[in-house]
Design a protein around this nucleic acid. Structure first.
Lengths: 110, 110
DNA sequence: TTTTTATATTGCAATATTACGATAATGATT
DNA sequence: AATCATTATCGTAATATTGCAATATAAAAA
Protein backbone atom coordinates (compact mmCIF):
# COMPACT_ATOMS: atom_id res chain seq x y z
CA UNK A 1 0.00 0.00 0.00
CA UNK A 2 1.92 3.07 1.16
CA UNK A 3 2.50 5.56 -1.62
CA UNK A 4 -0.12 8.28 -2.07
CA UNK A 5 -1.31 10.32 0.89
CA UNK A 6 1.41 12.69 -0.25
CA UNK A 7 -0.42 15.21 -2.36
CA UNK A 8 -3.34 16.99 -0.80
CA UNK A 9 -6.29 18.08 -2.85
CA UNK A 10 -6.00 19.75 -6.22
CA UNK A 11 -6.62 23.43 -6.82
CA UNK A 12 -9.72 22.57 -8.77
CA UNK A 13 -11.10 20.48 -5.96
CA UNK A 14 -10.42 23.22 -3.46
CA UNK A 15 -11.99 25.83 -5.70
CA UNK A 16 -15.22 23.98 -6.37
CA UNK A 17 -15.52 23.07 -2.69
CA UNK A 18 -15.05 26.73 -1.77
CA UNK A 19 -17.72 27.84 -4.23
CA UNK A 20 -20.20 25.25 -3.04
CA UNK A 21 -19.51 26.14 0.56
CA UNK A 22 -20.41 29.72 -0.17
CA UNK A 23 -23.76 28.53 -1.51
CA UNK A 24 -24.32 25.92 1.18
CA UNK A 25 -26.68 27.92 3.34
CA UNK A 26 -30.40 28.49 2.85
CA UNK A 27 -30.04 32.23 3.37
CA UNK A 28 -27.43 32.46 0.66
CA UNK A 29 -29.51 30.30 -1.66
CA UNK A 30 -32.40 32.65 -0.97
CA UNK A 31 -30.21 35.63 -1.81
CA UNK A 32 -29.21 34.08 -5.13
CA UNK A 33 -32.80 33.19 -5.96
CA UNK A 34 -33.94 36.69 -5.16
CA UNK A 35 -31.24 38.16 -7.35
CA UNK A 36 -32.45 35.88 -10.14
CA UNK A 37 -36.08 36.78 -9.60
CA UNK A 38 -35.70 40.54 -9.77
CA UNK A 39 -33.56 39.95 -12.83
CA UNK A 40 -31.30 42.84 -11.96
CA UNK A 41 -29.21 44.25 -9.19
CA UNK A 42 -30.48 44.56 -5.69
CA UNK A 43 -29.34 46.06 -2.43
CA UNK A 44 -30.81 46.44 1.00
CA UNK A 45 -34.27 45.12 0.29
CA UNK A 46 -32.81 41.70 0.95
CA UNK A 47 -33.01 42.52 4.61
CA UNK A 48 -36.77 42.79 4.22
CA UNK A 49 -36.95 39.60 2.20
CA UNK A 50 -34.97 37.39 4.54
CA UNK A 51 -35.83 36.37 8.09
CA UNK A 52 -32.50 37.64 9.32
CA UNK A 53 -31.11 40.77 10.87
CA UNK A 54 -29.26 43.31 8.78
CA UNK A 55 -25.74 42.46 9.99
CA UNK A 56 -26.39 38.80 9.26
CA UNK A 57 -27.54 39.54 5.72
CA UNK A 58 -24.54 41.77 5.20
CA UNK A 59 -22.29 38.99 6.38
CA UNK A 60 -23.83 36.48 3.99
CA UNK A 61 -23.44 38.94 1.14
CA UNK A 62 -19.82 39.34 2.05
CA UNK A 63 -19.25 35.61 1.92
CA UNK A 64 -20.89 35.32 -1.48
CA UNK A 65 -18.80 38.22 -2.69
CA UNK A 66 -15.56 36.83 -1.29
CA UNK A 67 -16.24 33.56 -3.05
CA UNK A 68 -16.80 35.43 -6.31
CA UNK A 69 -20.40 34.32 -6.67
CA UNK A 70 -21.80 37.83 -6.58
CA UNK A 71 -20.39 41.22 -7.40
CA UNK A 72 -21.16 44.42 -5.53
CA UNK A 73 -20.83 47.97 -6.72
CA UNK A 74 -21.33 50.94 -4.47
CA UNK A 75 -23.84 53.52 -5.66
CA UNK A 76 -24.19 56.36 -3.24
CA UNK A 77 -24.91 54.95 0.16
CA UNK A 78 -26.47 51.81 -1.19
CA UNK A 79 -24.71 48.80 -2.66
CA UNK A 80 -25.84 47.02 -5.79
CA UNK A 81 -25.26 43.29 -5.78
CA UNK A 82 -25.62 40.93 -8.66
CA UNK A 83 -24.70 37.41 -9.64
CA UNK A 84 -21.33 36.83 -11.25
CA UNK A 85 -22.32 34.92 -14.36
CA UNK A 86 -18.88 33.53 -15.02
CA UNK A 87 -18.63 31.92 -11.62
CA UNK A 88 -22.12 30.54 -11.83
CA UNK A 89 -21.36 29.07 -15.22
CA UNK A 90 -18.26 27.43 -13.82
CA UNK A 91 -20.38 25.67 -11.24
CA UNK A 92 -23.01 24.76 -13.78
CA UNK A 93 -20.43 23.23 -16.09
CA UNK A 94 -18.94 21.23 -13.28
CA UNK A 95 -22.22 19.53 -12.51
CA UNK A 96 -23.07 19.25 -16.17
CA UNK A 97 -19.95 17.19 -16.74
CA UNK A 98 -20.69 15.00 -13.76
CA UNK A 99 -24.18 14.33 -15.08
CA UNK A 100 -22.79 13.55 -18.50
CA UNK A 101 -20.42 10.99 -17.05
CA UNK A 102 -23.21 9.45 -15.02
CA UNK A 103 -25.30 8.99 -18.14
CA UNK A 104 -22.60 6.80 -19.60
CA UNK A 105 -24.12 3.31 -19.87
CA UNK A 106 -20.83 1.81 -18.75
CA UNK A 107 -21.52 3.37 -15.41
CA UNK A 108 -23.44 0.52 -13.88
CA UNK A 109 -23.49 0.16 -10.16
CA UNK A 110 -25.69 -0.07 -7.09
CA UNK B 1 -41.93 47.96 5.77
CA UNK B 2 -42.79 45.37 8.42
CA UNK B 3 -44.50 42.33 6.94
CA UNK B 4 -42.24 39.46 5.82
CA UNK B 5 -39.53 38.06 8.07
CA UNK B 6 -42.31 35.66 9.02
CA UNK B 7 -41.63 32.66 6.87
CA UNK B 8 -38.24 31.08 7.06
CA UNK B 9 -36.66 29.44 4.09
CA UNK B 10 -38.50 27.12 1.76
CA UNK B 11 -38.06 23.36 1.75
CA UNK B 12 -36.40 23.60 -1.64
CA UNK B 13 -33.93 26.17 -0.41
CA UNK B 14 -33.11 24.07 2.61
CA UNK B 15 -32.73 20.96 0.50
CA UNK B 16 -30.38 22.42 -2.07
CA UNK B 17 -28.33 24.09 0.67
CA UNK B 18 -28.07 20.75 2.47
CA UNK B 19 -26.91 18.98 -0.68
CA UNK B 20 -24.33 21.61 -1.48
CA UNK B 21 -23.07 21.58 2.08
CA UNK B 22 -22.45 17.86 1.77
CA UNK B 23 -20.29 18.55 -1.28
CA UNK B 24 -18.62 21.64 0.15
CA UNK B 25 -15.38 20.02 1.20
CA UNK B 26 -12.38 19.13 -0.95
CA UNK B 27 -12.21 15.63 0.48
CA UNK B 28 -15.81 14.97 -0.43
CA UNK B 29 -15.30 16.45 -3.89
CA UNK B 30 -12.31 14.14 -4.26
CA UNK B 31 -14.45 11.19 -3.22
CA UNK B 32 -17.07 12.03 -5.84
CA UNK B 33 -14.44 12.51 -8.51
CA UNK B 34 -12.85 9.21 -7.66
CA UNK B 35 -16.20 7.47 -7.84
CA UNK B 36 -16.68 9.01 -11.27
CA UNK B 37 -13.23 8.02 -12.45
CA UNK B 38 -13.44 4.36 -11.58
CA UNK B 39 -16.84 4.40 -13.22
CA UNK B 40 -18.20 1.90 -10.76
CA UNK B 41 -18.55 1.25 -7.08
CA UNK B 42 -15.70 1.62 -4.69
CA UNK B 43 -14.95 0.88 -1.09
CA UNK B 44 -11.96 1.19 1.18
CA UNK B 45 -9.41 2.10 -1.45
CA UNK B 46 -10.51 5.68 -0.90
CA UNK B 47 -8.44 5.64 2.25
CA UNK B 48 -5.38 5.06 0.10
CA UNK B 49 -6.39 7.74 -2.37
CA UNK B 50 -7.06 10.52 0.11
CA UNK B 51 -4.58 12.24 2.44
CA UNK B 52 -6.77 11.46 5.40
CA UNK B 53 -7.03 8.82 8.08
CA UNK B 54 -9.54 6.01 7.79
CA UNK B 55 -12.01 7.33 10.38
CA UNK B 56 -12.03 10.69 8.65
CA UNK B 57 -12.77 9.16 5.27
CA UNK B 58 -15.48 7.04 6.81
CA UNK B 59 -17.02 10.15 8.32
CA UNK B 60 -17.01 11.99 5.01
CA UNK B 61 -18.64 8.99 3.34
CA UNK B 62 -21.28 9.01 6.02
CA UNK B 63 -22.06 12.66 5.39
CA UNK B 64 -22.36 12.11 1.66
CA UNK B 65 -24.60 9.14 2.31
CA UNK B 66 -26.78 10.99 4.80
CA UNK B 67 -27.27 13.76 2.28
CA UNK B 68 -28.31 11.20 -0.32
CA UNK B 69 -25.44 11.98 -2.66
CA UNK B 70 -23.97 8.51 -2.53
CA UNK B 71 -25.42 5.11 -1.78
CA UNK B 72 -23.63 2.34 0.10
CA UNK B 73 -24.30 -1.34 0.01
CA UNK B 74 -22.57 -3.77 2.29
CA UNK B 75 -20.87 -6.72 0.61
CA UNK B 76 -19.23 -9.00 3.07
CA UNK B 77 -16.94 -6.96 5.22
CA UNK B 78 -16.47 -4.27 2.62
CA UNK B 79 -18.89 -1.53 1.66
CA UNK B 80 -19.57 -0.53 -1.91
CA UNK B 81 -20.29 3.14 -2.41
CA UNK B 82 -21.54 4.82 -5.53
CA UNK B 83 -23.03 8.08 -6.66
CA UNK B 84 -26.79 8.50 -6.44
CA UNK B 85 -27.59 9.64 -9.96
CA UNK B 86 -30.98 11.06 -9.09
CA UNK B 87 -29.59 13.37 -6.46
CA UNK B 88 -26.75 14.47 -8.68
CA UNK B 89 -29.20 15.21 -11.47
CA UNK B 90 -31.28 17.29 -9.09
CA UNK B 91 -28.26 19.44 -8.37
CA UNK B 92 -27.31 19.63 -12.02
CA UNK B 93 -30.78 20.77 -12.99
CA UNK B 94 -30.78 23.41 -10.31
CA UNK B 95 -27.66 25.06 -11.69
CA UNK B 96 -28.77 24.47 -15.23
CA UNK B 97 -31.88 26.54 -14.59
CA UNK B 98 -29.87 29.27 -12.94
CA UNK B 99 -27.56 29.44 -15.94
CA UNK B 100 -30.52 29.53 -18.28
CA UNK B 101 -31.98 32.48 -16.43
CA UNK B 102 -28.65 34.26 -16.45
CA UNK B 103 -28.42 33.90 -20.22
CA UNK B 104 -31.63 35.89 -20.57
CA UNK B 105 -30.64 39.13 -22.29
CA UNK B 106 -33.03 41.04 -20.04
CA UNK B 107 -30.66 40.21 -17.26
CA UNK B 108 -28.44 43.22 -17.51
CA UNK B 109 -26.56 44.37 -14.49
CA UNK B 110 -23.14 45.14 -13.09
C1' DT C 1 -12.23 -20.45 17.29
C1' DT C 2 -8.53 -17.31 16.86
C1' DT C 3 -6.80 -13.93 13.84
C1' DT C 4 -7.02 -10.83 10.25
C1' DT C 5 -9.23 -7.42 7.35
C1' DA C 6 -12.53 -3.76 6.44
C1' DT C 7 -15.40 -0.38 8.11
C1' DA C 8 -17.91 2.26 11.64
C1' DT C 9 -18.32 4.65 16.01
C1' DT C 10 -16.83 7.22 20.04
C1' DG C 11 -14.63 10.94 22.34
C1' DC C 12 -12.34 14.93 22.15
C1' DA C 13 -9.53 19.00 20.75
C1' DA C 14 -9.04 22.62 17.39
C1' DT C 15 -11.25 25.45 14.42
C1' DA C 16 -15.07 27.50 11.71
C1' DT C 17 -19.75 29.09 11.13
C1' DT C 18 -23.84 31.51 12.30
C1' DA C 19 -26.45 35.11 14.30
C1' DC C 20 -27.03 39.48 16.18
C1' DG C 21 -26.59 43.78 19.27
C1' DA C 22 -23.80 47.61 19.31
C1' DT C 23 -21.40 50.64 16.76
C1' DA C 24 -18.91 52.68 12.90
C1' DA C 25 -18.70 54.68 8.32
C1' DT C 26 -20.44 57.16 4.59
C1' DG C 27 -23.43 59.34 1.49
C1' DA C 28 -28.04 61.85 1.21
C1' DT C 29 -31.31 65.06 3.04
C1' DT C 30 -32.70 68.85 5.58
C1' DA D 1 -23.57 71.31 10.13
C1' DA D 2 -27.00 68.10 11.97
C1' DT D 3 -29.80 64.32 10.98
C1' DC D 4 -31.23 60.35 8.50
C1' DA D 5 -30.66 56.20 5.76
C1' DT D 6 -27.91 52.46 4.20
C1' DT D 7 -24.44 49.26 4.70
C1' DA D 8 -20.27 47.36 7.01
C1' DT D 9 -17.62 45.93 10.96
C1' DC D 10 -16.69 44.42 15.74
C1' DG D 11 -17.31 41.56 19.56
C1' DT D 12 -19.14 37.61 21.27
C1' DA D 13 -22.09 33.56 22.36
C1' DA D 14 -23.93 29.33 20.59
C1' DT D 15 -23.32 25.80 17.63
C1' DA D 16 -21.23 22.96 13.89
C1' DT D 17 -17.36 20.99 11.43
C1' DT D 18 -13.07 18.66 10.93
C1' DG D 19 -9.63 15.35 12.01
C1' DC D 20 -7.88 11.56 14.34
C1' DA D 21 -6.50 8.08 18.06
C1' DA D 22 -8.70 4.57 20.30
C1' DT D 23 -11.99 1.29 20.08
C1' DA D 24 -15.88 -1.44 18.43
C1' DT D 25 -18.15 -4.39 15.05
C1' DA D 26 -18.54 -7.89 11.85
C1' DA D 27 -17.37 -10.81 8.09
C1' DA D 28 -13.44 -13.64 6.05
C1' DA D 29 -9.47 -16.39 6.45
C1' DA D 30 -6.49 -19.28 8.90
Amino acid sequence: MGISKIDLFTDEQNTIAMLLKALAHPARIAIIEHLLKVNSCICGELVNELPLAQPTVSQHLKELKNAGIIKGSIEGNTTCYCIDKDTMNTIEEYFSQISKKLKNPENKCC
